[in-house]
Simulated scan of single mutants.
Amino acid sequence: MRKIVFLLLLFSGVVSAQQSYSVDTSYTVKSTYNKLIKKYPAITIPVVGKNKNVDEVYDVVYFKTKERTLHIDGFINKSKKQNPAVVMIHGGGWRSGNKSQMNFLAQEIASKGYSCFTVEYRLSLEAKYPNGVYDVKNAIKFIKDNAKKFNVDPGKIAVLGCSSGGQMAALIGTTNEKPAFDDPLNKSKSSSKVNAIINVDGVLAFRHPESSEGEMASFWLGGSYDEKTENWKQASALNHTDKNTPPILFINSSIPRFHAGRDDMIAILNQNKIYNEVHTIENSPHSFWFFEPWFDETVQYTTQFLDRIFK
């Protein structure tokens, strides 16, 4: 099923030649592989090939200002005119990483009957919270604005994120239709509302007994908890979870700190009879989704959940 390995895509940090902002390229598949291979000698890079039912488009501009142009990559299932969409957010501690790191997952999920989009967003060296959140919500609006072109059902949108991207996905989903979390510069009439959340090893609360977020979170949030208390509270999805939260899937590593606040969120979801699933992959490291044997498992849990919610 999979024949082509895009090693160059995964093993490099993508840096625009025209950029005028700093980029941290420390979080890559290659650096993660080198870090994990001694403890997990059986891991391999997934082999993912093009699917005849999936059209691929790269570096589509979804939002532009005088200072910045932002892009998405699209993996569009063309077997139907309307597919549920999956908007995908890379990890990297809000500071590093790039959209191409999510493309293997996007290709594979798209082959199962979805239109998937990996999102470039401003990282903490360039812009502090909440700008990255604005960016992803802008991408959601753009996808809805171009739903026919992308074979998307605008009423069936899921947001999926890994690590810090998982934190952002949960925040985006729990702040549906809350104007304070939408970019005031975006004049689109489309809503940034999503209908499902997939959180892959992302924290739900920054200030929590299970959380150990420190320097990376402080840098993104504009200061320490004492300096930027409101940002730390506002950026925690747990603080927004209520009866309006969409269904959510948690896929977690075996490292507890990466699901800080999850059980408290589930209690609220259950109280409001909101569907949720948890899958904790035993003996797995953080960033497990990059590698086999966990890549296929991640795809399986994701597509089963999406099929249940949307199909």
Rank of each mutant, 00 (worst) to 15 (best):
A260D: 08
G91W: 00
H90C: 06
A147M: 10
V54G: 12
V48C: 04
L36N: 01
G166A: 07
Y114P: 05
N146Y: 01
V60T: 06
A106M: 04
S211E: 08
G13P: 03
P247A: 02
I140Q: 03
S287L: 02
T118E: 06
M216L: 14
Y114H: 09
I72Y: 01
I37W: 00
T229R: 15
L269T: 04
Y275K: 15
K112Q: 14
R207T: 14
K137C: 02
S20L: 07
T28R: 12
L238F: 02
S20V: 13
V119C: 00
A147Q: 11
T298F: 00
G202R: 05
Q107A: 14
S190F: 04
V278W: 04
Y58F: 10
K156A: 05
F206H: 12
S16Q: 08
R262K: 10
I43N: 08
D55N: 12
W94Y: 09
M216Y: 12
F150T: 09
G214K: 14
T280K: 14
E108C: 10
N176S: 01
N146E: 01
S192C: 04
F63Y: 05
C162W: 00
K273C: 14
D182T: 12
T303V: 14
Y301E: 15
K3H: 13
D24L: 02
P246D: 04
G261C: 03
R262A: 11
F75V: 10
K149A: 14
E67Y: 03
F181G: 13
R257Q: 15
M1C: 15
L10C: 07
D307E: 07
F295A: 15
K3P: 11
Q271R: 13
I140V: 13
D135M: 02
G132N: 02
N176E: 00
S96G: 09
S212I: 15
A237T: 03
S192G: 11
L221Q: 06
L185Q: 11
F142W: 03
D153E: 05
I281V: 15
D73K: 04
K78V: 02
N34R: 11
I197C: 00
F288G: 10
N146K: 02
